[in-house]
Design a protein around this nucleic acid. Structure first.
Length: 928
RNA sequence: AGGAGCGUAGCUCAGUUGGUUAGAGCAUCGCCUCGACAAGGCGAGGGUCGUCGGUUCGAAUCCGACCGUUCCUACCA
């Protein structure tokens, strides 16, 4: 058998699985009717690539899906992608720009054609990456948020919401991206602290120009749109001025001084300029005081015709300079201060976002939100971890109407038409609209230019992908879906909206459970992102990447290119040799291992290496098993072959049952880390470290009977086979590769491990007696190993071992396991010495009351053994003191449960005896 | 500012309802080419569980305060 080389085994298996359609839902062969189980993929951006978050998330889901599939459920993991309106439009625009073409010159229709082309061309990337990861998605029913069915669903939802009055159009202040020239969601605005200035301007009173009110602003250019100056109603300094007017500099306007409790008297001068057209708080205040709203900007944040001629057409920052300078020259600039402030930037474009007054479409959200809140309150939907519900409730209970229009071309165009008089008509298409509203053919209609927020279509994801608005069998079978796995940042974006829309349209919850996973961060706990250059590409961990390529990749997409040098340095330090090719299974196993209940997870490449080693260990163990079981000449499983299972065989089978139980529990509670840990420890610490070793004397020993050998061979191969099935949901490739090598006499006639059954724990196979026997055996072996290790006696050198002061059961165990002990301990001889005999001076190890002795006789250094004994005795004395302290405490004895008290008492007795024995040995050794 | 999470070995993390001698992997230090595996085996060292208080017979675990850190929400012009 070859070495474990993930790259050689992984890709071909996936292809085979897919070709054979193993990932489509299927009924169990027993016609008892399988339970449907369905998870919808959070649709990745169709033109995007897989990032760490995806890799992590989809690995988790894949284990759940494979687990359920093997358990016999009719399992569907629905694949699909998202059109990602703004992101895709940016990319296509950039591509055109590179060709020297302006999108605006190309026109809408041609542009959309290009976007589709790009989707076709790049849309396969993320699918390929998901396949590399081993994600067992059903590709045959793959959907896209702009495919025909989704379009139909979107139209239906938009029209009906509109007809019910739940969609309306209004002029409001929105977050505006002047680069992309579209509204964006609050959630797509990222505010970071940046250095700015605070300008203090003096505004003269209209009736008394020698008197000023000083206002402070971070955005001087907006002063042209001021429609009031506000003070706090209780502010003694200004109370008397309320109701008077300011004559606004640089304009010919007079604006009132108003009183409002929003104003903080302690900040600055206590006077605030109010610009309802360009600030959300001011907008609200403007409403309270019925102030006019002046919009100063064009859609690219240059100044428009509302401002004095001199400033028209200027960019907002140029205008800022000019206005500041002009006010200064008028003597109205009081001072400029440095000021740290949170600057809102567009997540996608990186430019500063402006509150901007524009016509937008909204969903009236409260009627949809109420039932959605209730669904979580009453447990119809359960979040794991539970406290993620707080995020949901916090968002939902303070929810604002949803601005769903985007001034873009790529996406679902809003199905609204305007007559010349501005009247709005909503319907599926123009013809339907004419019919619906009884419009004559000569009535001209113009369609709304805007498209819908991408999340509008993805809100319909769970049911529209199953065929809605058609009443399909798939919808009937799989909805509500069983589980949604996503990050906490997506709760408000998507989870909440799916819940609202799904309840509204099919009166079911979209999913019964939501598992919120942690965020994978870099080694410093920072969120990974392309723009920060600290991201990792899962493919680079699977396939490996050179340092130079990694540096190039990381510095290629920076929002702030000046950070390139710093990122390069950090990258060279963290990955001086690039990243090795670890393979998919090890990466996946890493993901499970770090998926604990914590929120942030620092990604550590050393762990990937550790789990690669684990896969290697499993590979080699299988190699050993095959060598000893599949040789033709052995014929271990011939019909009529009698098999005898040893205590060791029964023990490993028992350990396996416990492992299955642990994995089951872990999967039920979404503790992927515990599932991974249970499997890791079983394979490495029990199967490899002990069972395989203990099987050797039987397999190779001359005194083992044919039946004993057959029993052990059977246990070896069947335990391996079950272990492979147990581990398959987590490390699908290596388990399939190995499983295929298991003889069909053991694994049955199935074609693939993917569709094999998942191991079930069997109470009947648990064997406490065998466990105790092996625990005893391990204690003996460990004891002698400890002596060897401490005394630097190599394993090649046989040592005499004496069992002293043992009980009858010790004696029985010794005899029963003599050959195993001889193999593992490599003794010169194993002697039983009765309690009344006098043992030689020896190195001592206690197993219960029995002493395991290795006579010094030239082998062992006297001082080293004394040191070893002292260490042991000191430790035991410390333990005894602790236990005695408890027992001598009357309130402990009085109040603690009896079992706990008894345990402490037993402990003291045991320790006393142990200390006594060790002391006696010490005296003896010291006397030499 | 408000909310949440985290703080356990040099590093990355487990530690289930308070009842062990606080664990694992990596790293470190010895020894070992013994027929599955050096991507390995065997052994060892390493922690006053962020700090201070409280509840309790008993606290890494529960409560409070503080410090540090991360995330989310809202931001004072």
């Amino acid at each position: 058998m070859k070495k474990y080389q993930p790259q050689e085994i992984e890709q071909s298996w996936y292809q085979k699985w897919e070709e054979n359609d193993y990932f489509s839902p299927r009924d169990a062969e027993t016609d008892s009717g399988s339970t449907p189980f369905c998870i919808m993929i959070p649709p990745p951006n169709v033109t995007g690539t897989l990032h760490m978050g995806h890799g992590f998330q989809h690995s988790l889901v894949d284990s759940v899906i494979r687990h359920r599939r093997m358990k016999g459920d009719k399992t569907l993991w629905q694949m699909g992608t998202d059109h990602a309106g703004i992101s895709t439009q940016i990319i296509v625009t950039e591509q055109l720009a590179a060709e020297g073409v302006k999108a605006s010159e190309l026109g809408r229709e041609k542009f959309i054609e290009r976007a589709w082309q790009w989707k076709e061309q790049s849309g396969g990337t993320i699918s390929k990456q998901l396949r590399r990861l081993g994600a067992s998605l059903d590709w045959s029913t793959e959907r896209f948020t702009m495919d025909e069915g989704m379009c139909e669903a979107v139209l239906t939802v938009f029209e009906t919401l509109y007809d019910e009055g739940l969609i309306y159009r209004g002029k409001r202040l929105v977050n505006w991206d002047p680069e992309l020239r579209t509204s964006i969601s609050d959630l797509e605005v990222e505010s970071e602290e940046e250095k700015g200035n605070l300008w203090h301007f003096k505004y003269p009173l209209a009736e008394n120009p020698q008197t000023f009110l000083t206002v402070a602003t971070t955005r001087p250019e907006t002063m042209l749109g001021d429609t009031a100056v506000a003070v706090h109603p209780d502010d003694e300094r200004y109370k008397h001025l309320v109701g008077q007017e300011i004559s606004l500099p640089l304009t010919d306007r007079r604006i009132p001084i108003i009183a409002d409790r929003y104003v903080d008297q302690a900040f600055g001068t206590g006077c605030v300029k109010i610009t309802p057209g360009h600030d959300f708080n001011d907008y609200d205040m403007g409403k309270r005081h019925e102030l006019p709203v002046i919009n100063l900007f064009n859609d690219d944040a240059t100044l428009n015709g509302e401002v004095p001629q001199a400033y028209q057409g200027l960019d907002r920052y140029e205008a800022r300079k000019r206005i500041t300078a002009d006010l200064d020259s008028l003597g109205l600039l009081d001072k400029v201060e440095d000021h740290m402030m949170a600057v809102p930037r567009g997540e996608k474009s990186g430019v500063v976002i402006e509150p901007y007054l524009s016509d937008q479409w909204y969903v009236k959200i409260q009627p949809l939100a109420d039932p959605a809140i209730e669904a979580v309150e009453n447990g119809s939907i359960q979040f794991t971890p539970k406290n993620a519900e707080n995020t949901y409730f916090a968002w939902m209970r303070d929810i604002q109407d949803w601005c769903i229009s985007r001034q873009q071309w790529w996406g679902h165009q809003i199905p609204a038409w305007y007559a010349d008089d501005g009247q709005v008509y909503v319907g599926h298409d123009e013809q339907a609209v004419r019919l619906k509203y009884g419009l004559t053919a000569d009535q001209t209609l113009t369609r709304d230019e805007d498209v819908l927020d991408t999340w509008f279509s993805s809100a319909l994801w769970t049911f529209a992908t199953l065929g809605w608005p058609e009443k399909t069998e798939a919808l009937e079978t799989y909805h509500s879906t069983d589980l949604m796995v996503t990050g906490h940042d997506i709760i408000s974006f998507w989870v909440s909206r799916m819940i609202m829309m799904t309840l509204k349209y099919i009166d079911e919850v979209p999913f019964k459970k939501v598992y919120i996973h942690g965020l994978v961060t870099d080694a410093d706990g920072q969120k990974m992102s392309k723009s920060k250059g600290n991201g990792l590409d899962p493919m680079d961990i699977i396939d490996g990447i050179s340092l130079e390529d990694l540096v190039t990749k990381r510095t290629g997409h920076l929002l702030q290119p000046k950070k390139a040098a710093q990122i390069e340095k950090a990258t060279r330090k963290e990955y001086p040799e690039g990243i090795k090719a670890y393979g998919s299974d090890p990466l996946r196993f890493t993901f499970y291992s770090i998926a604990s209940s914590a929120r942030g997870i620092r990604f550590d490449m050393n762990r990937v290496e550790g789990y690669r080693n684990f896969c290697n260990k499993l590979w080699n163990a299988a190699n050993f098993v095959f060598m000893n079981t599949t040789d033709e000449s052995i014929e271990p499983f011939a019909e009529g072959q009698s098999r005898e299972q040893s205590v060791v065989d029964r023990w490993i089978v028992s350990e396996f049952q416990k492992t299955v139980e642990a994995v089951d529990l872990a999967m039920e509670t979404y503790r992927f880390d515990l599932a991974a840990k249970a499997i890791y420890e079983f394979v490495w610490d029990q199967l490899c470290d002990w069972y395989l070793e203990l099987s050797k004397p039987v397999l190779n020993g001359e005194d083992a009977t044919a039946a004993q050998k057959a029993g052990t061979r059977f246990t070896l191969i069947s335990t391996l086979e079950e272990t492979l099935r147990l581990a398959h949901p987590f490390i699908p490739f290596i388990t399939e590769e190995l499983w295929q090598q298991v003889p069909s006499t053991i694994r049955g006639n199935g074609d693939t491990i993917v569709l094999s059954s998942y191991p079930e724990a069997s109470e009947a196979l648990m064997d406490t007696e065998a466990e105790n026997d092996i625990a005893w055996l391990k204690a003996i072996v460990t004891g002698t190993r400890n002596i060897r290790g401490e005394m630097d006696i190599s394993f090649g050198k046989p040592i005499p071992v004496i069992f002293y002061k043992g009980s009858d059961s010790d004696k029985a165990r010794l005899e029963a396991n003599r050959s195993l002990l001889e193999f593992l301990v490599k003794p010169e001889r194993l002697d039983w010495l009765e309690a009344d005999a006098e043992p030689p001076a020896s190195a001592t190890h206690l197993v219960g009351d029995m002493q395991v002795l290795v006579p010094l006789s030239g082998l062992i250094d006297k001082d080293a053994e004394l040191a070893r004994l002292n260490k042991e005795i000191e430790k035991k004395i410390k333990d005894r003191a602790r236990a005695e302290g408890k027992i001598n405490n009357p309130s402990f004895v009085a109040k603690a449960p009896e079992a706990v008290v008894q345990k402490e008492k037993d402990k003291v007795v045991d320790l006393n005896s142990a200390i006594e024995q060790l002391e006696a040995q010490k005296t003896k050794v010291a006397a030499l």
